Computed example of a mutant assay.
Amino acid sequence: MENRCEVGPSNKLSLYTDLLGDPICRVRNSPAYFMLVAEMVVVGGREDKERREIVGMIRGCVKTVTCGTKLSRNGKNGSIKTTEPVPIFTKLAYILGLRVSPSHRRMGIGLKLVRKMEEWFSDNSAEYSYMATENDNQASVKLFTQKCGYSKFRTPSILVQPVFAHRVRVDNRVTIIKLGTADAELLYRRRFSTTEFFPRDIDAVLNNKLNLGTFLAVPKGSYDAVSWPGADEFLAGQPESWAVLSVWNCKDVYRLEVRGASRVRKALAKTTRVVDRALPWLRLPSVPEVFRPFGFHFLYGLGGEGPNAAKMIKALCGLAHNLAKDHGCGVVATEVASREPLKLGIPHWESLSCAEDLWCIKRLGEDYSDGSVGDWTKSPPGLSIFVDPREF
């Protein structure tokens, strides 16, 4: 089914997924997940025997995420009270991987799959459901917005950087520290728990075997692996600028393949790789082998503070590129809010990226979140979002 259904923007080359293992592998790391398939009874053959053919599939998961903030006053025993935002959590469902066989489209199969999945969401007390699609995928957009009651919600950007044959130089004015899981969790909860879509079970994400590590960038001379005091002390006296990101190994879950390229385009891409390998000091931006199945790493949890935070993110992306090269990946990808301030520091190729991914959302029932956020579907977008790597 995955091989028969192309994904990706229609104005680009066709992108196909090549799953490793069972088809539910992309959501099975979530707290609650489910998969449905649609079968068609086919009669044929010499003896007119009946056989069942899978003509559609859908996957979904339910988790708890940040949907807004409220103000909380701190201070005891006569101390000065300060007001700071604290997260409001809600139970959110996510639809992933809706596929209908090209030969069985326009038969209502997709609509039936979505409605059955939403029944499961409601049975698991989900308050909202959302899905992601390409802005120019009119069939998908019409299905969800016109027939299923979803509304357009957020338009983040998917940024993709090819992995070159040469290593990327990391700014020597930046020190990069690999954080332990406990420090990474503390940093994320203290600084990013109020970010929209932040998963309440961030500890499960960071402890997952597909997580390759969390990396912190600081100005050279601030800290190093030896003098690192721990996340608690770091946050109490952080440097003027810093940045952080985590790396998720999608290569061990599924692979991608670009199809439909002409022989000329393939030949030109191969030439750039040959020259890059032969003359690495030229640092030629070569095109990786994307016309056969390739793996990739996903960068998530991007954030930081200070006037040089974008430069810090660029250094972290350089380290992530080199890590992906060591793992034999074809590209490095991330997804950020369209107005994300750190976006300027993320290297990417526009020809491989998607300027506007489309997230649609639907309110399934009353909002029982931890606080009063009203109707989340009507809330304005913030500067940042937290993209869960388990759903990418």
Rank of each mutant, 00 (worst) to 15 (best):
S151E: 04
S122A: 13
L210K: 15
R200S: 14
P162S: 04
V168W: 12
K178D: 11
E185C: 06
S103H: 15
S103N: 15
F164Q: 03
Y188H: 08
N135I: 15
R167F: 09
A184G: 14
R105L: 02
G213S: 09
H166V: 04
Y188C: 01
T155V: 06
D201V: 10
L186T: 12
P156G: 06
T145I: 12
E134C: 07
K142M: 10
F164M: 11
R190H: 03
S122Y: 06
F192C: 02
T175R: 13
R190W: 10
R115V: 07
F121W: 00
S103F: 13
N172T: 05
F215A: 10
V168Y: 04
D203P: 08
S193P: 04
R154P: 07
G110L: 03
C148Y: 05
N172V: 03
R154M: 09
E118D: 03
T145W: 00
S122E: 14
G180R: 05
K152Y: 08
S122M: 15
F215Q: 05
V205E: 02
V141H: 07
R169H: 12
E196G: 10
H104D: 06
R200T: 06
T175K: 13
F215K: 10
F164W: 08
A184P: 07
A184V: 10
L159M: 14
N207F: 12
A139D: 11
R173G: 11
R190T: 13
L212M: 01
V174W: 06
R106I: 15
S125H: 10
F192R: 13
S157D: 08
S129Y: 02
E134K: 01
V100S: 05
T195L: 11
T195Y: 03
F198Q: 09
L143N: 02
K178P: 06
F121R: 00
I158W: 09
H104S: 06
N172C: 09
